[in-house]
Nucleic acid binder design. Structure first.
Length: 648
RNA sequence: GCCGAUGUAGCUCAGGGGUAGAGCGCUUCCUUGGUAAGGAAGAGGUCAUGGGUUCAAUUCCCAUCAUUGGCUCCA
C-alpha cells in the first residue's frame, strides 16, 4: 500500500500501482469524468500512469492549466497522427501545448500544406478521436530511441534525444502514432470532442533563424463542441476591438503606401488624442521635477559611434544621410539618449545640480524588419515619451522609485490593470551581446530589483532580455488578441555616462560619473494609443475623448439653436460638434453612438423654447433634459472628477 | 528578413479568361421628423504595380509593393 496525500492534507491509502484516474474514481464518479491530468509530487502525470510510491496528489480538470496542458498536448499528437496519415514520411519537430491550444512543427519534405488542407485534417482528427485510442506511455533506453529515429531518418528527434539523459526517455503511442514525448497525456483520444486548426506558419527549428524553417500548424481543441463555438465567437469579438480596425473607423490614424510602411499618419482626431495624453504626462512630469528639452531629428554618425549604437545597429538601420560635403554623414535618430547626454555636457555639473531630469517627446526612426511591422504597435517612426535622469549613485533608488510612481499614475489614469512588470536581466552566458563592465551590470541589476521590492511590485524576471547597454523594468500589456506588448520601460544605465564621459563635481571637489535612468512610461505614443484603443474599445474617457458631445437637431428648423448651444459649450472648453445632416433623429443617434461620442444632445422645439438640451449618454440612453448651463457644468464636473481621481 | 495568406468603389465585401457588382458612406432631390438605419435619383473603380501567357487578362503565371497570421528581431 502507498500513502496518497491530498491538497487538504488528508491522507488515504491505495495499493501500489494505483493510477490518478483510479484515485479520482474512488472519490467521485463525476470528478473522474472531469479530471484530465494529475499532479504527483509537483510533476504533472498521465491519469493512467501507475503510482508506486507515497505521493502528494492534485487532480487537474479543464479549469486548471495543468489539465488543459494534457488536453492540448494530446491534441497535438492527434493532429500529428492525422498529418502522418495524409503526408507519410513527414518529420516531426516539437508539438507542445500553448496558452490557447497547441501546435506542431513539421517538415513535410517540400510538400506544401495550406489552410485549404485544414478541413480534411480536422475530419481525420475527429475520426481518430472517436476511436478512443488510449495514449500509452513507454519508457525506453536512449539507444533504442535513437535507433528508432535513425530508421525514420528524423534528424529533429535525434537532435532532441542528444540533449536527453538515458533513463528519462519516454515514448507515447496512440492508434498508429508514436512520438518521443515527456507527457503528460489524456487517457484516450475520446476526450477530444471538438477541434479546429487555426493557422499555418513558418517557424525556425529551435527558434534559431539560422536553422531550417519548419511548417507550424496551430490548432485548438475542447472537450465540448459548444466550448469551441464560444471560443471562436470570442475571437471574433476580440477582432472587433483590434486597434487597426478601430483606428480606421474612428479616424485616429492611417497608413499610406506612398509615405511608406510603418510610418503612421495621425489624423486630426488622433492628433488631438495624442496631444491630450502628452500634456497630461507633461503636467505630471513637471510636478516630478522634469524639464522639457527639444533635440533635432538627425545627428552626426559620430554621435552613435560614441554611444555604441552604430556598432550594434548600424547595418540594420536606416542608412546614413550624406551631404554635399565629402565624408559627412548624419543618422536619423533611433533614440534620444545620446542627444540628452550632449545636453548634460553643455556645462559643468555639480552634485548639487543632480538629479537632472530631461524630458522630450522625441520622434525616432528605426528600420524594423518588414515582417515585424504591426499596426500602430510596431512601426518605423514613432514618438517616445522619453526622459533621462542623471543622478548620483545615492539617488538612484529613490529616482527609480519615483519613475515607477509615474508609471502607476498613468496606468491608473487609463485604468490599465492587467499588466505584468518584467525585469529584464542580461544573460550571463552570453556577455558578448552586451557592453559595459560586469561590475556596472551587477550594480544596475541590483538597483532595479531593490527598487521593485521596495515598491512591493510583483515582477517576473527574464534572463537575456536586457537591452545591450543595461537591464530594464518593462510594463507589459496584452492586446485584444492576446499578444504581449511592452509599454512603459525604465532602464538603469552605467554605460552611456562612461561612453560620453559625463561628470559632476562632488562635495569632495572630485569628478564623479553620474548614473543615467532611461524611462518612457507610455513607451511610445503610437503603441500606447493602440493599446488604449483596444482597452477602451474606442470609448475613451471623457477627458481624453476627441469629441465630447454632439448636438443633434431634430430638424433643420433647430440649426440656429444648435449653433447657439455649440457656441455656449465651446465657451466652456467643451469639445462639441453639430450633426446637421438631413436625417431623422433615430439615424443620427445610431450613427453618433457608433462613433462613440460620449454625449448626444438632442435639440428640438421643446429644447429651444426652454433653453435646454436632451442628454443621451453613449451606451446608456436617454438621461432627460438639462438646461445648457447645467449640462456644461455637469460635463466639466465629470472631467474634473476624472482628472482629480487620477492625481490622488 | 523567413514561411503562409490576402490586395476589386472612401469603408466592408461578393464575383470571375470576353474591360465589373452589393451594402454602408458621399452628392442632389423629396421629406422636417422626438431617442439606434425614412424614400428616390446620381457620382464614384487602369480590379495594388510591373512584366509574361493568350485573339482577349481584373481573372492564369512570375516579380515588386502593401496588408496580414506566425517565426526571428525589437536601442
Amino acid at each position: 500500500m502507498i500513502k496518497i496525500t491530498f491538497p487538504d492534507n488528508s491522507i488515504r491509502e491505495y495499493p501500489a500501482g494505483v493510477t490518478g484516474l483510479d484515485i479520482a474514481k474512488s472519490l467521485s464518479n463525476s470528478l473522474a469524468e472531469k479530471v484530465l491530468s494529475v499532479g504527483i509530487n509537483g510533476e504533472i502525470w498521465d491519469l493512467t500512469r501507475p503510482i508506486y510510491v507515497d505521493a502528494n496528489i492534485k487532480l487537474y480538470t479543464w479549469e486548471d492549466d495543468q489539465g488543459k496542458l494534457a488536453f492540448w498536448h494530446s491534441s497535438a499528437h492527434l493532429m500529428a497522427e492525422a498529418l502522418e496519415f495524409f503526408y507519410p514520411g513527414v518529420k516531426l519537430g516539437i508539438g507542445p501545448s500553448i496558452e490557447n491550444g497547441f501546435y506542431y512543427d513539421i517538415d513535410t519534405g517540400g510538400k506544401a500544406i495550406s489552410e485549404a488542407d485544414f478541413p480534411k485534417l480536422e475530419q481525420k482528427m475527429k475520426e481518430l478521436a472517436s476511436m478512443k485510442n488510449p495514449y500509452i506511455r513507454r519508457e525506453i533506453p536512449k539507444e533504442e530511441a535513437v535507433s528508432h529515429y535513425s530508421e525514420k531518418n528524423d534528424e529533429y528527434k535525434i537532435e532532441l534525444l542528444h540533449d536527453l539523459e538515458d533513463g528519462t526517455i519516454s515514448f507515447y503511442h496512440q492508434g498508429n502514432f508514436t512520438d518521443l514525448c515527456r507527457g503528460p497525456h489524456l487517457p484516450d483520444t475520446g476526450y477530444i470532442k471538438a477541434m479546429k486548426l487555426l493557422n499555418i506558419a513558418g517557424a525556425y527549428w529551435r527558434g534559431d533563424e539560422r536553422n531550417k524553417q519548419l511548417t507550424r500548424i496551430y490548432g485548438i481543441s475542447f472537450p465540448k463542441q459548444k466550448m469551441l463555438e464560444e471560443y471562436l465567437f470570442m475571437l471574433e469579438e476580440a477582432k472587433a476591438r483590434d486597434h487597426r480596425k478601430l483606428g480606421k473607423e474612428l479616424e485616429i490614424f492611417a497608413f499610406s503606401q506612398k509615405v511608406g510602411s510603418g510610418l503612421p499618419l495621425w489624423l486630426p482626431k488622433g492628433a488631438q488624442l495624442r496631444e491630450r495624453l502628452e500634456s497630461f504626462l507633461k503636467k505630471v512630469q513637471k510636478d516630478y521635477g522634469y524639464e522639457q528639452v527639444i533635440t533635432p531629428h538627425i545627428a552626426q554618425k559620430e554621435l552613435y559611434i560614441t554611444s555604441g549604437h552604430w556598432a550594434k545597429y548600424g547595418v540594420t538601420s536606416f542608412k546614413p544621410i550624406s551631404t554635399p560635403e565629402e565624408g559627412e554623414e548624419f543618422l536619423l535618430k533611433p533614440m534620444n539618449c545620446p542627444h540628452h547626454c550632449e545636453i548634460y555636457k553643455v556645462k559643468p555639473r555639480s552634485y548639487k545640480d543632480l538629479p537632472i531630469r530631461m524630458a522630450e517627446f522625441g520622434t525616432v526612426y528605426r528600420y524594423e524588419q518588414s515582417g515585424e511591422l504591426h499596426g500602430l504597435t510596431r512601426v518605423r517612426g514613432f514618438t517616445q515619451d522619453d526622459a533621462h535622469i542623471f543622478c548620483r549613485p545615492d539617488q538612484l533608488k529613490e529616482e527609480f522609485i519615483k519613475v515607477i510612481d509615474i508609471v502607476f499614475i498613468i496606468f491608473k489614469a487609463l485604468d490599465f490593470k492587467n499588466f505584468t512588470a518584467q525585469i529584464s536581466l542580461r544573460d550571463p552566458n552570453d556577455k558578448e551581446k552586451y557592453i559595459g563592465t560586469d561590475e556596472n551590470w551587477e550594480k544596475a541589476e541590483k538597483a532595479i530589483i531593490e527598487a521593485t521590492e521596495e515598491k512591493g511590485l510583483k515582477t517576473v524576471i527574464e534572463i537575456g532580455e536586457a537591452a545591450f547597454y543595461g537591464p530594464k523594468l518593462d510594463f507589459m500589456v496584452k492586446d485584444a488578441l492576446g499578444r504581449k506588448w511592452q509599454l512603459g520601460t525604465i532602464q538603469v544605465d552605467y554605460n552611456l555616462p562612461d561612453r560620453f564621459e559625463l561628470e559632476y563635481v562632488g562635495s569632495d571637489n572630485q569628478r564623479h560619473r553620474p548614473i543615467m535612468i532611461h524611462r518612457a512610461p507610455f513607451g511610445s505614443m503610437e503603441r500606447f494609443v493602440a493599446v488604449l484603443l483596444e482597452h477602451t474599445a474606442g470609448k475613451f474617457p471623457l477627458w481624453l475623448s476627441p469629441e465630447q458631445a454632439v448636438i443633434l437637431p431634430i430638424s433643420e428648423k433647430y440649426h440656429d439653436y444648435s449653433k447657439k448651444v455649440l457656441n455656449f459649450l465651446n465657451n466652456y472648453d467643451i469639445r462639441a460638434l453639430i450633426d446637421d445632416r438631413n436625417e431623422k433623429i433615430g439615424k443620427k443617434i445610431r450613427d453618433n453612438e457608433l462613433k462613440r461620442i460620449p454625449y448626444l444632445l438632442i435639440v428640438g422645439e421643446k429644447e429651444e423654447e426652454s433653453g435646454t438640451v436632451s442628454v443621451r449618454k453613449q451606451g446608456e440612453g436617454d438621461k432627460g433634459s438639462m438646461d445648457i448651463q447645467q449640462f456644461a457644468d455637469f460635463l466639466n464636473q465629470e472631467v474634473r472628477q476624472q482628472l482629480e481621481s487620477i492625481s490622488k
